[in-house]
């Protein structure tokens, strides 16, 4: 897969029009301006922030916004990846390349370690997933490094419980989200004051929709992992959804493996992220497909389908 790289010589069409009118006036998209504002507040208000990096398009978008917020300084915090051990290999390769290019510190903590230490018990059977196990590993990592603010790429449009999430979301010692007792957030006055033992989850792209993220990736020509584009992959079908036929994904004997032309809409844990049939090999085509699609982004996440309140429950336990 050919990745799109940023070409500084390309003149943006709207900018070209404005330049033509002899005014180099800066007018930023309000969502981008808001996200950059939030990034700066995090760094100013907290001692030790960290960016939760999954290798997915949302966290890649966060990295670009962070680059812009602090330029010409480098991104002033490390990236933290909670590796379930079931990641797409393409995502890991992409992650390592990006970190090298940016010169930022990458911390990786493994769910496998939490399992080996007996802190969590691996799920068994057909619908086994390590997605909910990540929470323990994440909380341990925050504790280990004494991070007081964890920046994540969650968006309010993703899911009903997330629609009620704050931009600065305070968590207690156990990482729990008390949804009925959240701080009001008024104007641009973000309150990041916390007590000892508390930490904050920060969501700079809270107000972005999935289409906004894709538009931004297109506009900024941001590289994203190849699994977002159509590729041939060994897959099998279960409950009407297409799964990657990988060792990490449990498969019944009667579930037949076939090569299909697919792409992924999110890059979660392989065991809970379904593929869609697609021949979209360019970003433009991917976005066009998303716009036309009638299934929501998280509709392809089996972890949310477990129960109607699945996300809310996981969030109360410290999931981000």
């Amino acid at each position: 897969m050919e990745l799109v790289t940023k070409d500084r010589n390309t003149i943006d069409p709207l900018e070209a029009i404005e330049t033509h009118n002899n005014t180099a006036t800066l007018a930023i998209n309000p969502l981008e301006s808001e996200a950059i504002y939030i990034f700066r507040e995090v760094v100013a208000q907290f001692e030790k922030p960290v960016l939760l990096f999954s290798g997915g398009k949302d966290s890649i978008t966060l990295v670009r916004l962070a680059q812009k917020a602090f330029y010409p300084s480098k991104i002033p915090f490390p990236l933290l990846h909670i590796d379930t051990g079931h990641n797409f290999p393409e995502t890991i390769a992409f992650r390592d390349k990006l970190v090298k290019e940016l010169g930022v510190e990458l911390i990786v903590r493994y769910v496998q370690d939490s399992i080996d230490q007996g802190k969590v018990i691996e799920e068994k059977g057909k619908y086994a997933s390590r997605n909910s196990l990540q929470t323990t590993t994440l909380l341990d990592a925050l504790e280990e490094f004494k991070f007081d603010a964890a920046i994540g790429g969650a968006r309010r449009d993703e899911e009903k419980a997330r629609a009620k999430e704050r931009i600065f979301s305070v968590r207690d010692d156990f990482g729990q989200w008390d949804e009925k007792n959240q701080r009001p957030e008024l104007f641009d006055h973000l309150n990041g004051k916390i007590s000892l033992g508390q930490n904050v989850r920060v969501f700079p792209i809270s107000n972005w929709t999935e289409l906004d993220v894709w538009s931004y990736i297109a506009k900024e020509k941001i590289e994203i992992p190849s699994i977002y584009f159509a590729h041939t992959r060994k897959t099998f079908v279960r409950d009407g959804m297409i799964w990657s036929a990988d060792d990490a994904v449990y498969r019944e004997e009667d579930e037949v493996v076939e090569e299909r032309l697919v792409r992924f809409r999110t890059v979660g844990d392989m065991s809970c992220t379904a593929a869609v049939l697609s021949d979209a090999v360019t970003l433009e085509k991917v976005v066009e497909e998303i716009r036309a699609s009638t299934i929501s982004e998280r509709g392809a996440r089996i972890d949310d389908k477990r129960s109607e309140a699945a996300m809310e429950k996981r969030k109360q336990q410290g999931y981000f």
Partner: peptide, 15 residues
């Protein structure tokens, strides 16, 4: 628009 820009870039700019 040049060959490298897309409808989505424009959507973002004009949002």
């Amino acid at each position: 628009r040049s060959e490298n820009s897309s409808l989505w870039e424009v959507r973002w700019e004009a949002m």
